[in-house]
């Protein structure tokens, strides 16, 4: 067992596990896009950044690839981490403005604007599909091609691969190709208003059919007061 401090809480976790696994086991939420249990950690999306160390030596590392160390001091939601995450999400949004998962995460993390040009790349090069194809489906049909700006994921020569069984595993795990609901504002950069709303009257018998989505809801407040 390895002893470390996560958000000021002294804990001991299994030696060799990653910071992400340890934090999630203890209930500290860390958002991820390129992490999936059963696939090797890759550290591509950078969303799982946490701050380790103290004072001027503190630095941001990706928790999905960082193994726990004895005496490690981890902060999963410090100001620096939250700001870094917001920036990463904003950049990811610029790459894939239409992806539901990224939109939802951006909305949940308080990204309220989009300062970058929208690229509509429909791929964040997280490599989830590549690892899925290689490690779980044992097919190795798709992979990274090219370098730098022209890096892309696909089959060799963009032809139908002989080893692909069209299992659909790549689509299943893809965080970018599930389109978001655009509702009425089709071109809005940041949508995702619905993620933050819960109908508060649902569990009250009197307002059963009136899902008002308002929070705080005046009717509920009145009823509560009258009780």
């Amino acid at each position: 067992m390895t002893n470390l401090t996560i958000n000021g809480l002294r804990v001991s976790v299994e030696t060799g596990s990653t910071v992400l696994e340890a934090a999630r086991f203890l209930g500290f939420p860390i958002p991820t896009l390129c992490h999936l249990e059963g696939l090797s950690p890759y550290g591509a999306c950078r969303l799982c950044v946490v701050e380790i160390g103290e004072g001027p030596r503190a630095k941001l590392v990706t928790s999905c690839t960082y193994r726990v160390e004895e005496g490690l001091k981890v902060r999963t939601a410090s100001t620096r981490v939250v700001r870094a995450r917001r920036m990463i999400l904003e950049l990811l949004l610029g790459t894939c403005p239409q992806a539901k998962k990224i939109q939802d995460l951006a909305s949940a993390h308080g990204v309220r604007q989009q300062r970058f040009r929208q690229e509509h790349d429909d791929c964040i090069l997280c490599g989830l599909c590549v690892r899925m194809c290689e490690e779980q489906m044992m097919a190795r049909a798709i992979g990274f091609r090219g370098r730098g700006e022209s890096r892309s994921i696909g089959t060799p020569f963009d032809m139908k691969s002989e080893v692909c069984r069209t299992c659909g595993g790549c689509q299943l795990v893809c965080p970018a190709c599930q389109l978001r609901c655009t509702f009425v504002e089709k071109d809005a950069a940041v949508c995702g208003g619905c993620v933050n709303l819960q109908p508060p009257c649902l569990d009250r018998p009197k307002f059963d059919n009136m899902m008002c989505y308002m929070k705080p809801c005046v009717a509920c407040e009145i009823e509560q007061d009258g009780r």
Binding site: I142, G143, R145, R147, F157
Partner: peptide, 14 residues
């Protein structure tokens, strides 16, 4: 080796 690995290397280097 899988074709994509070879293709990846061939496209990676200029």
């Amino acid at each position: 080796k899988s074709l994509i690995d070879i293709y990846g290397v061939a496209t990676f280097y200029k």
